[in-house]
Amino acid sequence: MRKPVEMIRGRPASDGAGVKLLRVFGGPQPERFDPFLMLDEFGSQEASDYIGGFPPHPHRGFETITYMLRGKMEHRDHLGNVGLLNDGDVQWMTAGRGIIHSEMPRQTEGMMRGFQVWLNLPAENKMTPAHYEDVPGEKLPRFQIGNSEIVALAGSAEVAGVNVKGYFERPKTLPIYWDIHLAAGEKLQIAVPDQYVVMLYAYEGSVKVAETTLQPQHLLRLSLDGVVEVKNDGADEVRVLLLAGKPLREPIAQYGPFVMNTPAEIEQAIVDYRNGVFGQ
């Protein structure tokens, strides 16, 4: 079994125009999470916590995956694209050489809750043209294993003899991104390939991972070899995100919304943005 290596507690943060969120990981020593760069959880019943949204801002060199549990969020970008995410929907955006976009609430009351993951791009793909795909929640593959359910956003692995395969695939980083709804008293063993970085984030209830209790709003990074085992000893269903992927093992240079391989490439991103040729 994979063993716990690092426990991280999500910390309150603010981004965009004052949106309150939990920054689960991101920032110093990003190599620990390679190929992932960041995980944010946002969620509030209070409109004042999210109504400012994320006005136009740039990205270059990575991908963003936005998973809406509840609420309505609109995406607009400088390429003329417009999309609306609703309950359960996913947007996978490849920023590539550059995109300027906004993410704004399309509701003025009620719960808004979801996650955004940043996934790095390999050096050879960092300057690919920007594009994105919105996927309705009902199109995401769902797998019933016992009384538990896996919503498979991305990636493949075997669980209890079942090949769980997600909607999205990426050839270099081979990311696995699952939303696991683990029923009371059940256990899952997930055969993630060795040498993949593996992280589990509990967002509703507590789960046992190799006899370590993972509390809500905490993330556990695991060792690089062995099967991933999650167990629910409680009386209620728990929900946990699984993030796993093949490390790129490339240099990471980051300045805010720009993630490249060298400081010179970061400088060029800043110059392109200031000169109005970003993404061209």
Rank of each mutant, 00 (worst) to 15 (best):
M1E: 14
P4N: 12
V5K: 10
M7P: 02
P12Y: 00
A13E: 11
L21P: 00
L21D: 01
G26M: 03
P30Y: 01
F33S: 10
F33Y: 14
D34C: 11
P35A: 01
L37F: 09
S44A: 08
E46V: 11
D49T: 07
D49R: 07
D49C: 09
I51G: 05
P55A: 03
H57Q: 12
H57A: 09
P58C: 06
T64C: 04
T66Q: 01
T66K: 00
L69P: 06
R70C: 11
G71F: 00
D77K: 05
D77Q: 04
G80W: 11
G80T: 03
G80N: 07
V82S: 14
W92F: 10
T94E: 02
A95N: 08
I99E: 00
S102K: 03
E103Q: 12
M104I: 10
M104D: 02
P105Q: 04
T108W: 10
M111D: 05
G114M: 01
Q116N: 07
L121I: 05
P122G: 04
A123R: 13
E124G: 11
K126W: 04
P129C: 02
H131Y: 13
H131R: 09
Y132T: 06
Y132G: 13
V135Y: 04
E138L: 12
K139N: 14
P141Q: 07
F143I: 11
I145P: 08
I145A: 09
V151W: 01
V151A: 04
G155Q: 01
G155I: 06
A157W: 02
A157N: 04
E158D: 13
E158P: 06
G161N: 12
F168I: 08
L174P: 03
L174S: 09
P175M: 05
W178E: 00
H181T: 13
E186P: 10
L188D: 00
I190D: 01
A191I: 02
P193T: 05
D194W: 13
Q195D: 15
Y196I: 06
V197L: 06
Y203E: 11
G205V: 05
V207F: 02
V207A: 02
K208D: 15
T212G: 12
T212L: 13
T213E: 15
T213I: 15
Q215H: 15
Q215Y: 14
P216N: 05
Q217M: 15
L219Q: 08
L220G: 03
S223K: 10
E229P: 06
N232T: 09
G234H: 11
G234Q: 12
A235E: 15
V238Y: 06
R239K: 15
V240N: 00
L241C: 02
G245E: 01
L248V: 01
E250W: 06
I252L: 12
T262A: 07
T262H: 12
T262S: 13
E265L: 03
E265M: 08
Q268I: 03
Q268T: 07
D272S: 08
N275P: 00
V277A: 02
V277E: 07
V277M: 05
F278E: 00
G279D: 10
